[in-house]
Each structure stands twice: as C-alpha cells, then as structure tokens.
Computed example of a mutant assay.
Amino acid sequence: MSSSMPTLAVRYFAAARAAAGVAEETVPGGRSLDQLTGELVRRHGARLGTVLEMASFLVDGVAWHDRQAPLPAGATVDVLPPFAGG
C-alpha cells in the first residue's frame, strides 16, 4: 500500500475483537461505513458479519450513524458490539 493512499484504523472491542481475531488493523480509506463493513466481513468471515450487524461505530470518538457517508481519511473507527450490563 502506498504511503500516499488514505487509510483507516479499525479497532475492535469485546465480541468484535474475538470474531475478527485481531485487536486493530489498518485498511484502505476512501469508503463509507457500509463499504468498510463489507470489506471486514470479506477479510474475517461471517462471524464478524453477525457482530457488525449489531455493533455501534465511533469515528474519531464520535458516534457515526450515516452508513453511506464517506469516512474521513486517516480516521480511527471503533467497532463496539452490544455490551451486557447488569
């Protein structure tokens, strides 16, 4: 990957980390959240896809709800599955 290509850092927490098999990775940027999650499922499989369907996402610490909007180049995307409380 060229150093001039925009990238995203993806950090996984709890069940997302277990499903992805990694805590963090860097992926090519220039995509929406829907495109990013599709790429992550291709990389890591259907188990992660199930988690991603229920997950919340933070982009640079802010909740990200527009799954079609382009993610900012160089952003950090946190994947937060539902947490059990009690």
Results as ranks from 00 to 15, higher is better:
M1V: 14
P72I: 08
A84W: 00
F57S: 00
Q68C: 06
G38A: 15
A14I: 05
L80Q: 00
G61L: 01
F83V: 15
L8M: 03
H65L: 13
R47N: 12
R31M: 13
D66F: 02
W64A: 15
P82E: 12
R31P: 03
V41K: 03
F83Q: 11
D66Y: 04
A15R: 13
L48H: 00
S3Y: 10
Q68Y: 08
A15Q: 14
F83H: 07
M5D: 14
S56V: 06
A55K: 02
L33M: 09
V10S: 06
V59E: 01
S3Q: 13
L48R: 06
A19I: 10
V10D: 08
L71V: 08
R42E: 14
H65K: 14
V10I: 15
D78L: 12
T7R: 12
Q35F: 02
E24L: 12
T26F: 01
G30Q: 06
G29Y: 03
V41Y: 02
S56K: 10
V77I: 15
S56T: 13
W64F: 03
E39W: 09
R43W: 01
L80I: 09
A63C: 09
T37V: 09
A18S: 12
D78I: 03
D66T: 07
S3C: 05
V62N: 10
L80H: 00
V10L: 03
Q35G: 15
V10W: 03
D60P: 12
W64N: 09
D78F: 08
A18G: 08
V27A: 05
L71R: 07
E24Y: 02
M1A: 14
M1H: 11
E25H: 09
P82I: 06
V62R: 13
R17C: 04
E39G: 13
A19R: 02
L48Y: 05
S4H: 13
L36W: 04
G45I: 06
V77G: 04
V27T: 10
D66S: 13
A20V: 08
P72A: 11
G30N: 02
P82V: 02
V62M: 05
M1F: 09
G38K: 02
Y12L: 02
L33V: 09
E39C: 04
V10K: 00
S3G: 15
T26C: 10
E39R: 10
L33F: 08
A69C: 07
F13Y: 12
A14S: 13
L71K: 07
M54D: 14
V22C: 12
A75K: 07
A18W: 03
R67C: 05
A14M: 00
D60Q: 01
A55I: 04
P28D: 15
A84H: 06
V51N: 05
A69M: 07
P72R: 04
R43Y: 07
A15G: 11
P72S: 08
Q68V: 11
R47E: 15
T50E: 13
A73N: 12
P82G: 07
L58H: 07
S2D: 15
E53A: 14
A75Y: 06
L36F: 01
G85Q: 03
V79F: 06
